[in-house]
Structure formats: C-alpha cells, structure tokens
Design a protein around this nucleic acid. Structure first.
Length: 273
DNA sequence: CTTCGTTCCTGGAAGC
DNA sequence: TGCTTCCAGGAACGAA
C-alpha cells in the first residue's frame, strides 16, 4: 500500500534507470487505468518524448516528459512502476509497457487495477485530488500552526482527519495509525477535541514516522515493491499497524482493533488518550 | 457546507 | 480437502 515513503522510494529507485531516456513505444493492456486523455492520445502524446525528471507530490509520481507535459501516476493500493532491462520478460500483472531507449523498459503493474495515470499537457485537465493536495509532512508549511485551526473545525475522528489528503498529503492507513500511536492520541477522538499541545505532538509524530518510513525504504506489507522490485523494511519497526491482539511495545497491553471511517485501525487503549 | 457509506478490484486468509 | 465468504484500502462519488 504505497503511501508517501513508499512512493518516494519508488521515485528514488526509478530515477537512475529512466531519467534521460526516450520513450520509444507505449502499450496499454488495460484501458481504464488511463484517465486522461484517451488511450490513443496518451500513447501518441508520449512516444518520442524524453523522461527529463521524476518528481513526487504527496502519493503521486510526476514524470516530466516535456516543458509543458507531465505523466502523473497514482499507484493506489497495488500499483507498481518497475524498470528493468528490455530483454527480461514482463513482470506479473503488467498493465502498461513503456519501451525506453538504451534497452530499458518501464512497466506499470497492478493486481487490483485501482491505479490511475494522467498525461497532462499545458494543464489541460483539473485532476481532483492532485490539485487540492495539502502540505506534505517534513515540509516548511506543515506546522502545528497550520494544522490547529483546521483540526478545530473538523468534527470527525482524528484518524480520518489526518488521512484527508487535502489536509496532509501522503499519509495512508499504516502511517496514520503509527502517527497516532507515537503521539499517544486515540484514533477515534474527534479532531476538534485535540488540545494545542496534542496537535504539536501529532505534528512531531507525523514528521518522525514519515522520516523513519523513508529511511527504512518503505513498509512492505503485501504487495509494495520499489522501482527495482525490492521490498522495504519499515514493517519491522511498526508500533501498532497489523499488530491487533498483540502486546503494545510500550506497556504490554493487548492492542485494540476498530473500524474507523471504514479503515481497520489498531491502537493501544492504555497508552493512547 | 460537512460527514458518512459505498464502490471499484483481486488475491489471500479465514470459516464452514 | 474444497468451496464460499470476508477482508485488505485510496479516493471518487453519491447520499444524508
């Protein structure tokens, strides 16, 4: 489940293999993954272009293919971008093939096929979700002063609040649970009940958890792999996610599970207030 | 306006 | 053992 640290790791591992290479051919095996423009326009718009740079915004990867053109990719749950030598056979669940120069091929693979790709030229389309992203953890704009007034207006569980990409870009279910565990805040508490001190702690925890995720090259739970097909190691350092029923690493209490906003959530009812 | 529930999809695990 | 059912979850969408 790629969240910000996983997408960042994909960006890093992909860059040396695809940057500066020319797109010689594009084959789309599942049309509905291409959200803009048409599949034909997507293919013809990319062939002949060079991948100048690969960036990231929240959980979106942004491949700059010309001064006025970007290929925007969201991996959703099980999407992956894998760069490998062209002579190697297609990886499992291959959905789009980008044949690059210098004998390299970039594959978009996806088991559950929720991934989305947009080819944007001169900002000719408004991508809801991409344009409305809030600040990222570890950025200058992401501060308690930014978060506090928004939290005070939000009458919903704090977990749902921090998962909102318009509020914070990049958190997903795993890191949201981890951030709340580290800041010792119960996930079901409504955001507008948090004190200023708690918001400061939450901000700190979000930065720490995301920085640790990046340092550990992402969390591989089921399907996540980076641009070279390797797994991350952050799953070895999780406080609560997927540990429901097991002892809290801090106090030994059995960790609780609960559905919050339709998401499986794990927390320590003793440590978190 | 905000908030909540449903939907998309497949594979793996759990249940009978 | 083998079938069926449930669950995983990012974010758009419609309903309340």
């Amino acid at each position: 489940m790629p969240e910000m640290p996983e997408v960042e790791q994909v960006r890093k591992t992909l860059a040396p293999h695809i940057q500066g290479k020319k797109i010689e051919n594009v084959e789309v095996y599942l049309d509905r993954l291409v959200k803009h423009p048409t599949v034909e326009g997507f293919i013809s718009g990319l062939i002949g272009k060079t991948i100048e740079k690969i960036g990231r915004k929240g959980k979106y990867l942004v491949l700059h293919t010309a001064a006025n053109q970007k290929l925007i990719v969201h991996l959703r749950m099980t999407g992956a971008l894998i760069a490998q030598k062209s002579e190697l056979e297609a990886p499992p669940y291959a959905k789009i093939k980008f044949t690059l120069s210098e004998g390299m091929t970039l594959w978009f693979t996806d088991i559950r096929t929720f991934g989305t790709l947009y080819l944007v030229t001169d900002n000719d389309v408004f991508i809801d979700g991409y344009e409305t992203l809030g600040p990222e953890p570890l950025s200058e704009e992401f501060t308690a002063e930014y978060l506090a007034p928004l939290a005070k207006k939000a009458k919903k569980p704090v977990k749902t609040f921090i998962l909102d990409q318009k509020i914070i870009a990049g958190l997903g279910n795993i890191y949201a649970d981890e951030c709340l565990a580290l800041s010792k805040i119960l996930p079901y508490r409504h955001a507008n009940t948090l004190t200023d001190e708690e918001i400061v702690e939450l901000c700190k925890a979000i930065n720490i958890v995301i920085a640790q995720g990046i340092k550990n090259k992402g969390t591989t739970f089921r399907d996540y792999k980076d641009g070279e097909g390797n797994k991350g190691s952050n799953q070895e350092h999780l406080l609560v996610y997927s540990r429901g029923g097991k002892p809290c690493k801090t106090c030994g209490e059995t960790l609780s599970t609960m559905k919050i906003g339709g998401r499986g959530s794990v927390f320590c009812a003793k440590c978190q207030k």
